[in-house]
Amino acid sequence: MYALVTFIAGALMIFGGTVPYIPQYLEIQSSGNAEGFSTYVCLTLLVANTLRIMFWFGHPFETPLLIQSFMMNATMLAMVYVCVTVRNKSEIVANK
């Protein structure tokens, strides 16, 4: 029972931070509008999670938190990609 609770808690820690960005990603992609999303959020989270990964090499902490940092970096890179892609398409259309 303890192992199951530990596994579920670890999974929630890993994916809990990334799940809220899924609807936002899908909305930006489907609507073609990234106006309400600030890429500064992505920058802040990329820096924070990269620092946490680097800190792990000096003082190792729980593995789920390390995996969460990698997942958040991947999520933020995906958000930056969709924002840049959508904004570039809208600028190209506006310039024509």
Score class of each variant (00 low, 15 high):
56 W>A: 02
41 V>D: 04
65 L>E: 03
8 I>N: 02
54 M>C: 11
68 Q>E: 12
52 R>M: 09
64 P>F: 06
43 L>N: 07
39 T>K: 13
56 W>S: 01
21 Y>C: 03
50 T>H: 00
88 N>D: 11
84 V>Y: 11
18 T>E: 01
75 T>N: 07
77 L>C: 11
86 V>Q: 02
48 A>D: 06
37 F>G: 04
96 K>T: 05
3 A>G: 07
43 L>A: 15
77 L>T: 08
7 F>Y: 09
26 L>C: 11
22 I>P: 01
8 I>L: 13
46 L>Q: 04
10 G>W: 04
23 P>S: 14
24 Q>V: 10
41 V>G: 02
80 V>D: 02
11 A>Y: 11
43 L>K: 08
68 Q>W: 08
12 L>Q: 08
27 E>G: 12
29 Q>Y: 13
85 T>D: 12
39 T>Q: 14
20 P>L: 11
20 P>A: 08
3 A>P: 02
46 L>R: 01
61 F>K: 06
90 S>M: 08
18 T>A: 15
3 A>D: 15
26 L>F: 12
10 G>M: 10
90 S>Y: 00
50 T>V: 09
67 I>L: 13
19 V>I: 15
92 I>V: 12
59 H>A: 13
33 N>P: 03
66 L>G: 03
35 E>V: 06
18 T>V: 15
39 T>R: 15
77 L>N: 02
65 L>D: 02
53 I>H: 01
31 S>M: 01
3 A>R: 11
40 Y>A: 14
48 A>G: 06
25 Y>V: 01
2 Y>M: 06
86 V>S: 03
67 I>D: 06
3 A>S: 14
34 A>W: 01
